Structures are given as C-alpha cells and as structure tokens.
Simulated scan of single mutants.
Amino acid sequence: MALSRDGILGAVDIQTEKVFVPEWGDDVIVRGLTGEELDAFQGSIRQFRPTFDGKGMEPVLVQDNMRAKLLVKCLVDEAGERLFTDQDASALGAKNGAVIDRLYDVASRLSGLSEEEKAQMEGNSEAATDSGSSASSSPETSDAPSLSS
C-alpha cells in the first residue's frame, strides 16, 4: 500500500547528525534543510549576468562565504532550534576554515546536495548547466543515526 498524503506530510524525515569539533572542544548538531530551505539557499547563491555576447543571461554562483551561509541554517541546539540567524554568517565565516569546511560537508550531505551541485557551488566543475540545475536525481544518505528532537 502506498503512502497517503497525511503519511507523507506527517513523516519525520529531516536528518540531524552530531559532529565532534575538536577545535571547539565539543559536539555540534547539524540539521539537513527542508526542501523549501534548500531552494531558498540555492537561490540565494545564484545570480544571473549578461552573456559575453550580450544576447542573453547566464547563471553564476556567488560563493562569498557560501559555506557559512549554509551552516547558519543547519547548526541547531538539542531542541532543533537554529543557533544562528542568517545575519550571523559573516561572524561564523570568520571561524577556522577547516572546521567550516568539514561541517559544510555534513550539512550539504544531510540537505541532499548532490556531489555535482556541491562541485558547481564550490567552483570545481566545468559542467555548470544553463539552467543551474543538477542532473542528479538522488541525494546521498547518511549512515549515521538521526537524532530526534
């Protein structure tokens, strides 16, 4: 029997993961984004600029402090409440880059960013599409157990 509308909407499917950060001396909890939050994040780091020939527009990724912009949305307390506001991204981005990068990897995995999307956002891909969308259809899953709030 297939899931009903209520079954789907009632499913608790947002994953969280505790991550020990030795540089900070304790664990942090990383929560994956909802579909709506993921779309908003991806939209916030995309802009359009005129093409070289001036006859159209092309998508470009704004990578300024991108990792911290994702993390302020994904770092939560034991109750699942965000630790930071979006305005805290600059302050969080001033922390150790290796820590931010490790936590970004967890947040992007839990949020369903595909490896191709991640590569495009990090500027490691020459395969950026005109639409800015990913060819991947399935997010990675976590082997780590989810924490329930």
Rank of each mutant, 00 (worst) to 15 (best):
A79V: 01
K118L: 11
S90W: 03
E81S: 07
S108P: 07
D27A: 10
S138T: 13
G93I: 05
T34S: 12
S114H: 06
E116A: 10
P145N: 00
A89R: 01
R109W: 00
E122P: 10
K73Q: 01
I45P: 08
R67Q: 11
S108T: 05
V106F: 04
G10W: 04
S136G: 15
G25L: 13
P145I: 05
N65G: 07
S111Q: 11
G35V: 08
A107P: 03
E23S: 04
A98D: 15
G10N: 09
A40L: 14
M57C: 08
A91G: 02
S125D: 06
D105K: 15
R49Q: 14
A2C: 09
K55P: 11
R5W: 02
V21G: 01
A98I: 13
L38K: 08
G112C: 07
V76M: 05
S131H: 11
T16Q: 03
I45Y: 09
I29L: 02
S131M: 09
C74Q: 05
P139A: 00
A127W: 15
I14M: 12
V21K: 02
G10P: 06
S136M: 13
Q42Y: 13
V60S: 08
C74F: 01
R82A: 06
L61S: 10
K55A: 09
E37G: 08
K55E: 14
V60M: 04
G123V: 07
E115G: 10
D13H: 06
D143K: 09
L92R: 08
S125L: 06
E140H: 12
G25Q: 11
I8Q: 04
A94L: 07
R31W: 03
S108F: 00
N65C: 00
F84G: 04
R82D: 05
S4K: 13
A127M: 06
E117W: 00
D86L: 02
K118P: 03
L61R: 13
